[in-house]
């Protein structure tokens, strides 16, 4: 039985469908499936996506295609032509467009997504894409609720908006203050993909710089794939445990992915590729995402082949050299 098949959805009185928050179902899943032993979870991006992303899954990626996001894993999902994904679309400029163009995503809980170009309106008009409305922090709060094993979370925003009307949120009388308050359903994604700067082979991971919700996302999701710029020895993790923000307990797969956030930036490691950023935005605007995907995804076998054939060492070195700030990042 697949994760998606085990998952239930609810429809509220406004007719809005949302993923049913079910902490006990998550606990039961965690009891059976989350690996307690320290065993290596190192695998290729192809094996990780094949094993852990199923058609129909609710997918959350942390950050996005252009900012320390799991860009190589997003491309692999597209390459493997996954279908009917429900996407947590917060703080994202490009990835949702790629997933919709490729026929991978059919639903999106919106915080913010880059909306340029005709791909979204066309998919919505043809009934291939359904939006639900939240906000960026509304989505990260839902993940926080999942990460603390709860079924809902109080939210001091979203109330009174039209987004609220098209969300799974509701207003209740706070049992302690008596005041009306918005509560959001916890989000337990089926699968999360997260790019980190450093991890060991078990999935103990470090993230440097500002971020969105990597720790909450890793804990709330049933299946978790990390891609990491660099593998570090577990002895190094033990030497500075305060830096660990994602524990091995949460993680199912670790993919070694230098330049895994390309064309995005990865703080402390490399700058974004501004030309590529312009190229993908132009592809969205001019309705040429099909060509974009052919060049950057379908015509190459994996991320290292894409970097070798489509980007090249000179460019990669340039991007490393352009990331000049050292303060706060690993040496």
């Amino acid at each position: 039985m697949t994760t998606a098949a085990n998952r239930r959805t609810s429809v509220n009185e406004r007719g809005v469908e949302y993923l049913t928050p079910d902490p006990d179902a998550f606990r039961a899943y965690a009891r059976e499936h989350k690996q307690r032993r320290l065993i290596s979870k190192l695998m290729t991006e192809r094996d990780a996506i094949a094993a852990f992303v199923e058609d129909g899954d609710y997918l959350v990626y942390d950050c996005n295609y252009l900012q320390r996001g799991p860009a190589s894993l997003i491309r692999e999902i597209i390459r493997q032509r996954k279908k009917d994904l429900w996407v947590g679309a917060k703080f994202t400029y490009v990835a949702l467009a790629l997933l919709v163009q490729a026929g991978c995503a059919s639903r999106a809980d919106v915080g913010y997504f880059g909306s340029r170009g005709p791909v979204f309106s066309r998919a919505a008009k043809e009934g291939r894409l359904q939006f639900y409305e939240y906000s960026n922090a509304g989505m990260t709060l839902r993940l926080r609720a999942g990460a603390q094993g709860a079924s809902f979370i109080q939210n001091r925003s979203l109330g009174g908006t039209d987004g609220f009307r098209h969300s799974g949120a509701c207003v209740i009388d706070d049992p302690f203050t008596g005041s009306p308050t918005v509560v959001l359903p916890a989000l337990y994604p089926d699968v999360a993909i997260i790019h980190v700067q450093e991890a060991d082979v078990y999935g103990n991971a470090r993230v440097f710089g500002t971020g969105i919700a990597h720790a909450e996302t890793a804990l709330a999701a049933k299946k978790v794939i990390l891609s990491t710029e660099r593998l570090v020895e577990t002895e190094e993790i033990r030497a500075n445990p305060g830096l660990t923000s994602i524990p091995w307990l949460a993680v199912d797969a670790v993919v070694l992915a230098p330049f895994g956030a390309y064309p995005g930036s990865c703080q402390g490691f490399y700058a974004s590729d501004a030309e590529h950023t312009a190229e993908v935005f132009a592809a969205m605007t001019k309705d040429q995402l099909g060509e974009y995907l052919e060049r950057w995804v379908y015509s190459v076998e994996d991320n290292s082949q894409m970097l070798e054939r489509r980007v090249g060492e000179t460019k990669l070195l340039e991007l490393r050299n352009r990331e000049v700030i050292r303060e706060g990042y690993p040496s």
Partner: peptide
Amino acid sequence: DPIQTMVSSRAGYRALQWGTMNVAQ
């Protein structure tokens, strides 16, 4: 750089704290 107004080393340079979206909210 284009789009790099957040979650980038330049935008977060010399901050007093690096948090996440939930920290800001």
